[in-house]
Computed example of a mutant assay.
Amino acid sequence: MPVSLPLLAPAAGCDCRRCPWYAGPDPADPAAVIAPLCSGSNADCSYCGCARAEARPGPGVGDVCRTCPVRCGSRTDIGAWMADVGGTLEFDDIDLGGGRLPAGLPRFIPQTDGSAVGALDTQLRWGAYGVGLRRVFSPDTAALYPRFVDRDVHDVLGLRPGQLAVLVGYGLDPLVEAFWTRRRTDRLVERIAAQGWDLVLAPNYSIFGNWPRSQHLLSMRMSLLIADEFVQAGMTTVPNLYWYRLEDLARWAAWVEDTAPPAVAINLQTVRQDSDWQTWVLPGLHWLAENLPPQLPVIITGLSRAARIDLAVDLFGPRLHLVSQNPHQFALHGAVMTAEGRQDLHARPVDAFTASVTYMASLLPEDRR
């Protein structure tokens, strides 16, 4: 009878001396290092001192893990989480199969709520429209909205022949976590594939500075796995890159070089503070611009300030695609995006939307509509 080996998992208490993923100097047991992915625990972690990590006895200590928002080696169910991601934190077993972005994808892709795309598009005849995951998958019921079930997305959105539908698979943590949990039992990926999306920007799983390093590694693995599941369902899919350290960027670049995905995506919708832009986003974008293959398309979601868009154009040039929901949000209030910022003109929604999309596209030279 074969002997089942214990499932590898991050060490309890973020103890690098006992962690199979530690890549730092002088590990306690060099033979235990399976894949050197991590340079050490996160000094900014707010969870490494929890009751479970410190092994303090007492009733209900283990139950705390069920309500904790992060996955660390001290969890009572860390083995189940490792099994759920394939028993590894590496990327080497995932290959999205290469491929290319759909023909005719414009450099600027307006993101809408999916309710009135045809009405907004009457003056533009734009090449592609994006719809966020929360408009397709309900955060309240953790199920697909009935209007999308068993229907072609182009019909649901009222698109014209040749216009592309892009699923922007980002959302708040409760939404993307629910999607992960329900995706297999409810066949969510296969059912979304049947809707006929032309491109999927795969859901991304968060990396916060005050989370343990094990959660960072799991989140990156989950983001790549979910992209692979969309590819296996027959969809052109772009993985989302998140990072916290330089070693994360290096891992992404090595994976891209080995597998040649059709593009990479970066979700910056949650970057609200200038400090995050300066200390995390900007250094990462500069590094990626220098180390990704020079012809690889880069799709960024969440940039709205002209200065930041200009910087992204300087870094990535004509391979940059931008996704933004600002033109649609402004149009609902009759406002227009301009070089001077938001202008409240009380314009008709269709006129405001047309002006904002045209302006944002003008920031991306050599538009390929």
Rank of each mutant, 00 (worst) to 15 (best):
P30T: 02
D15Y: 01
N42Q: 05
A51P: 00
D15V: 07
P20H: 08
R52S: 05
E54W: 06
S41F: 08
C38P: 04
S46Q: 05
R56E: 00
P36S: 14
A28V: 00
C50R: 12
S39V: 04
P36H: 12
C50V: 08
A23W: 04
P36M: 14
P25M: 04
C16T: 09
R17K: 10
L37G: 08
P59H: 04
L37T: 11
L37M: 09
P30F: 02
L37C: 01
D15M: 11
A23Q: 03
G40M: 07
P27G: 15
A55K: 06
I34M: 12
C38H: 12
Y22S: 13
P30R: 08
R52I: 12
A55L: 13
Y47R: 07
W21C: 03
D15S: 03
A31W: 10
A28S: 04
C38R: 15
A28Y: 02
V33Y: 02
R17L: 06
C19A: 04
A23D: 14
C14T: 01
C19V: 14
D15P: 03
C14I: 08
E54Q: 14
G49Q: 13
W21K: 04
Y22R: 14
A12P: 15
S41W: 03
W21R: 00
P25S: 07
C45I: 00
A51M: 09
D29I: 15
C45V: 00
E54H: 09
G58C: 01
D26Y: 05
P57N: 00
A28L: 09
P36V: 14
A32T: 06
C45P: 07
A43F: 03
G13S: 05
P57Y: 01
P27D: 11
R18E: 14
R18M: 08
